[in-house]
Design a protein around this nucleic acid. Sequence first.
DNA 1: ACACGACGCGTCGTATACGACGTGAATCCG
DNA 2: CGGATTCACGTCGTATACGACGCGTCGTGT
Lengths: 155, 155
Amino acid sequence: MARDRDPDIESLAHSIELDLNEIRQILRRPHAAEYARGQLTAPQRMVMQALFFSDGMSLKELCRQVSLSHSTVSGIVDRLQARGMAARGTDSEDRRLTRIAVTPAVRQFMQEQAPRLTAQPLTEALSRLSQPQRRAVSRGLRLLRKALEPKTDWG
Amino acid sequence: MARDRDPDIESLAHSIELDLNEIRQILRRPHAAEYARGQLTAPQRMVMQALFFSDGMSLKELCRQVSLSHSTVSGIVDRLQARGMAARGTDSEDRRLTRIAVTPAVRQFMQEQAPRLTAQPLTEALSRLSQPQRRAVSRGLRLLRKALEPKTDWG
DNA sequence: ACACGACGCGTCGTATACGACGTGAATCCG
DNA sequence: CGGATTCACGTCGTATACGACGCGTCGTGT
């Protein structure tokens, strides 16, 4: 079983793949333009947002929050650090951990700009939808994510 | 108007962003493992799939089909070409166009492997869902994509 | 015929994005 | 208590992914 090659599902998978590609592309593009002044790309903004709402966290925890591999996040933090927007420090409890946090100087600035850190194109797009439509989008994504998660046990 | 900062929508946008990230990550990972023997990454597979179902197409058309910028696709075709799986040729009608097609040698091989070119993790995930759930996923994505598309006119 | 703008493509620089590997620190265990 | 294992992180190599730039080609207008 499960080897039954269902053309309908495969065609649906293809169409979903294209939708995901286009959504990803649209979400990536405006960010670079919108935040060009702040020099923040979409992933950088996500990392800064996660850091801002905490007072320092390990790289591992940061990876979990943004759903990216540690090597990717490490590179992002590198650039953030080079710009003086984030700082690395060794945890005093466990010297394996790296404590990553936004710099105090930036923290003040972020406090005012925090609302602008949210994904604007996405927010605007959602605003154009009705409440039931928004729920449909959210539900569809959560369903897909759940179905994709390997560890999830589907009784 | 439209400047009313709705916390609900922003929170929803954040959650949707996380869902999209995780979906993307899951879809990217298994492909590398699944098609490691064929040396095909997910974008390479998409390009090959598009090429296979046509007898040569321009880079522009290829970009449109996979929703990627021409510079990205150009690089992917470079690697495909280096492996001898795709070929470039100049169009005789319009010398600006580059005619991209799968090599005849690979075409024979692809004919047998074509079914395996579909996104397997996605297909399997969708198989685990019921028909109404699949429709909910599809509908949610289409809604989001439509809402994100800038050119779309929303009466 | 011929500048000239529009178009398609290749390339470069930069930023993701990941797996694999190495290093050092903490933990486990005999 | 010392070796093995595990863990967190940094780094490397490769592959996306994009905008910007430049080149050659086409279409247009005069």
